[in-house]
C-alpha cells in the first residue's frame, strides 16, 4: 500500500479552538477537519568563498500547488501515513519543475542575504514530497455570520479563506 510523508500536527484541535477563541469570547469556533497540503522539501549543501568561510546547509520548501518558495529554519521531522486520505490536496507542480524553482530560489536568497566573493556552489542533499497539516476552522460571530479560515497545525499561524 502506498504511503506518504507528513508532519505530525503540533497544534491539536483543542489548541486551535483555544487559540482562536481567545480573540473574542462571544465567537463560536468550530474546528472542522484536518487538510493535508503538498510541499516539496529540498536540502542543499552550500559552499562559497568569502574572506571568512561560508558553508553549511540551507533548505527550502516549494508549494506543490502554486510553486511558491519558502526558506525553512530547521530539518523537519516526517512521519509516514497511508495514502488514503480524501483530505489531501493534489500536487500540481512536477518534481523536476519544483527542483528548478528551488535551485533558483535558494541561489537568489543566498546571493541577496549573504556576502560572498565567488559564485556559491549548491548540491542537493535531500529531497522529498511531504504533506503539511492545516486545520480548517469556522469562526462564527452572531451579528456577522460565518468565516472560514485555515490554521497551520505546525506553527499555529492562521489565515482567513
Amino acid at each position: 500500500m502506498n504511503t506518504i510523508l507528513t508532519q505530525e500536527p503540533e497544534f491539536a484541535e483543542s489548541d486551535v479552538f483555544r487559540g482562536l477563541k481567545q480573540y473574542d469570547r462571544k465567537a463560536n469556533v468550530y474546528v472542522r477537519q484536518l487538510l493535508f497540503y503538498p510541499y516539496y522539501f529540498f536540502e542543499f549543501e552550500l559552499s562559497a568563498k568569502s574572506l571568512l568561510k561560508l558553508s553549511g546547509k540551507i533548505a527550502c520548501t516549494i508549494d506543490g500547488i502554486s510553486g511558491k518558495e519558502a526558506i525553512i529554519d530547521m530539518k523537519p521531522a516526517f512521519s509516514t501515513c497511508f495514502n488514503e486520505t480524501a483530505d489531501k490536496l493534489s500536487v500540481q507542480v512536477e518534481e523536476m519543475e519544483a527542483r528548478k524553482i528551488a535551485e533558483r530560489f535558494v541561489f537568489q536568497t543566498i546571493s541577496q542575504k549573504t556576502k560572498f566573493i565567488s559564485i556559491p556552489s549548491l548540491k542537493i542533499s535531500d529531497c522529498s514530497l511531504f504533506y503539511r497539516p492545516f486545520w480548517l476552522a469556522e469562526y462564527i460571530l452572531k451579528e456577522k455570520g460565518k468565516q472560514q479560515l485555515i490554521v497551520d497545525a505546525i506553527s499555529g499561524s492562521y489565515h482567513p479563506l
Partner: peptide
C-alpha cells in the same frame, strides 16, 4: 495576527 505569508495556501485551499 493573521499570517500574511499563508495567502497562497489560503487561496489554494479555498479553491480546493
Amino acid at each position: 495576527n493573521i499570517a500574511r505569508n499563508l495567502a497562497p495556501e489560503a487561496k489554494n485551499i479555498a479553491q480546493f
